[in-house]
Design a protein around this nucleic acid. Sequence first.
DNA 1: TTGTAAGCGTTATCAC
DNA 2: GTGATAACGCTTACAA
Lengths: 339, 339
Amino acid sequence: MSAESGADRPTPTLEMVAALAGVSRATVSRVVNGAPSVDPHLASSVEKAVQTLNYVPNRAARTLASRRTYTVTLLVPESTSKVFADPFFATVVEGVARYLNTTDYMLNMVTSSEANPEKTRRYLLGGNVDGVLVVSHHSGDHSWTQLNASLPTVFAGRPLVNAANSYFVEVDNEEGASAATSRLIEGGRRHIATIAGPQDMPPGVDRLQGWRSALLDAGLSDSLAETGDFTVVSGAVAMRRLLDRGQPLDAVFAANDQMAAGAYSVIKERGLRIPEDIAVVGFDDDLYATSLSPALTTIHHPIAALGEKMAELLVELIEGRAAERIHRLPTSLVVRDSA
Amino acid sequence: MSAESGADRPTPTLEMVAALAGVSRATVSRVVNGAPSVDPHLASSVEKAVQTLNYVPNRAARTLASRRTYTVTLLVPESTSKVFADPFFATVVEGVARYLNTTDYMLNMVTSSEANPEKTRRYLLGGNVDGVLVVSHHSGDHSWTQLNASLPTVFAGRPLVNAANSYFVEVDNEEGASAATSRLIEGGRRHIATIAGPQDMPPGVDRLQGWRSALLDAGLSDSLAETGDFTVVSGAVAMRRLLDRGQPLDAVFAANDQMAAGAYSVIKERGLRIPEDIAVVGFDDDLYATSLSPALTTIHHPIAALGEKMAELLVELIEGRAAERIHRLPTSLVVRDSA
DNA sequence: TTGTAAGCGTTATCAC
DNA sequence: GTGATAACGCTTACAA
């Protein structure tokens, strides 16, 4: 029932279009690729021919001739299984796909096969792709930081090493953490703790710094800090330690929602109320945020936007346009019931 | 620090290999493609040349000449955002990638852009890919069932329409449901209800059928059935209706774990105990299964294996090998605490 | 501005 | 079994 019923006619080629339009193949090529100067008259007749023939350029031929592949690879880190089920990853990919859909580029995924990363490396460096997108959750720790020397590469999040030479887009973690903390201060809290993320990854460091600077700006103490590893249980452990210090504490900024969830359980288990006794603000605005009770006030992490921006940056790089090495996406405070 | 330091030398071509090995390009091509008959002596010398030059065939050229792309597309259904965050989808992809990594095929994703599905169609039918993989969660409802007429296509799950002409791999839903029910019967239960899935999608139908046949084989009644839509709340609603019938009921088979979760809440709310008063078995073995309390006994749904099998089937189709239209993957009972 | 023609790196069809 | 040689469909100097 589709449009191609009874269609065994051969795929139209550039040559056929040229013939139909009565021009040379070169001209058709120019029109198709939006070349700067072609007689508008001829151009339109070519376009008509393209329409009626339903012509679509052959990628392989184009690639072979131009040495451009119009393909960008999404490099999926080693531990495929986990990474893929990670909503962060999924959302980034969604953003990437969304942007790429507005361009001529195709997305292809290569999971850097545990088997042989060398195969992946060869594929990438073997002229099969125009650029690479590297996604690796919170951790900036990936072994592909040297890629950008040979191929346009964009990272999700500031790479731990070689950041100075890398193109990447990250969320403005420091600003977000600062906004979260300010919310607490404005709410009248004066003894504001934090459950920080790992200090060996950028988001962990930056969010701690944001909390600290907001506090210092307000003339408050930054002594109430414990570190977790972004998991729910680590959040609970940290909260417990915080409470066991026996110091006044009326609010806590958790560096991500999962740790906030852990903090929730401990706070409740001690018979304290949220937000009356202790106000809580998280970071990420992930699934946990709304499923917690009371609903968590948190910092929205624009993940899909991050993916879109990464793709946009990469295309700019590929096409040789000037581009900023660093893109920092703004976060926003989502006020719910915990602070 | 990588292997390509100081490497500005051009990518080796088939021609260079031929020169180095002292044979014709045709021979090199034969060796590289594992052609049936080439003098083993020459072959090895070619292989040596390939090694030393670190030759890798150029995909575009190969595609142009052979009219094979060595690329398979994973078609992501309309609602990208949701689908992608769905662990089912993620896991299928993982399996697909795993299999493809053992072959020469590349995976490329195209999200059938809401914008213009026509673009997608043209891409697929325009000779850019060798085959397509269509994934659409439980529902067999996708508008791409006609694709297989023009391109090797494999579906995840039995398509609702045109199933007779489609290649697909599905989990053996009926057998699984039957096993779940048998578990209940063997546990001494005699009044076994079911919370069935939607009857307009294959898994819903098949799982209901499995429950029914197990019951009938045991000489038990199949009157205790209510239908949900695979969501947690629909499970709760169905359970409530079941209980409100006022008939004896000592066990329930939920067609998926989410509905089982819904049933749990109602059972507890009525002051009944699991499994003492009512035993429960689910289906899918997803995240809910272990997070419920008591842990849910359920049917394991081999999702990654499904992805692997899909990819394998597709490659067989592409390479013209004989292949079964239908592949049914076995499920397994995972015994935990609810039955 | 437009056309001519030379590739791009393989595979495939032939003779040898 | 092996080697010329013609495609494959498009881009891109270079000429006109």
